[in-house]
Amino acid sequence: MIHINASILDGSFYFTISFLMIILSFLGYFLYIFTENKLFSMASFIIVITAFALQTFAFIIRWRYSYHIGIDLPPLTDLYDSLVFFAYVILLGFILLKLFYNFDSLGFIMTFIAMASMAFATISPLATSAIEPSIPALRSYWLLYHIISLFLAYGAFAASFGIAILFLIKYKQIHNPKKSKNINQAANKANPLKFLSILYYPFILLYRQFIKLSPPIETLDEAIYKVVVFGFLFLSIGIVIGAAWADNAWGGYWSWDPKETWSLITWITYAIFIHARLTKGWNEKKMAWIAVIGFAVVIFCYLGVDLIIPGLHSYATPGSTPIL
């Protein structure tokens, strides 16, 4: 049965409201993309900032509540909290990027990712908003710093993914004008009466509008690099904190647990990104592709490992027996 997570007491009600706001801002960006009316994007951005502020408030409520019920740690350990936190850093990342680069078209992708994460948190039966005491191994302040750095990294990688998508769309148009012309023609020819064209017409339109509304390709390239290296820095910090914690808690800084291994794989993916720039023949397009693939690796490391391979760090099995 689907159960909506919403309780005023533990703060999840406010998260649910912020979820609705994110949906609204996504719709606003959607309208902006098609109408090119700046009013929509401005309104959406204001909603995003409000949702972010509301989530900040909700986190404070939730933290205080968790102290109140005798759990002396911020609630960040279960699937619900982590998904909500993921959406939170994505909004933060988008707000910062918007201030630096003024990407409106990026809003569409970023609010979509935040929306997906919030939807999973709010509706999925796997994610419950009830604050449950965590297993003994997690009762440590290392946890807080470990999770915050990793989520800053995840948020940055999500942003680089969004920008890389814009980059690749734009790149295709510049380097393959014939093909994109065909797509334009196809869009013009598309007969709304035909069932198939109804299906793909919006995507073609979206594609065209993305090309039109995105910043120049060089700016996108620079933004991908800067966002990725920000993420890489925090990923490195998060992994090192995790290792130091593991060393402190159970005597080995590395035990090849699946989550650990996947975080290393993520790290390697972005190390390849950083070095790809230095190799002849690996142009910006390859780097954008690595940013896209890298985000898939991040998502697998974050959720896939828990849902598929259980281990030390499992989010997906609340209250599971401690396997240390």
Binding site: W256, I265, V305
Partner: peptide, 11 residues
């Protein structure tokens, strides 16, 4: 790439 691939097998 090779190190990542081998690590994946291990997971």
């Amino acid at each position: 790439i090779l190190i990542a691939a081998v690590s994946i097998v291990g997971t």
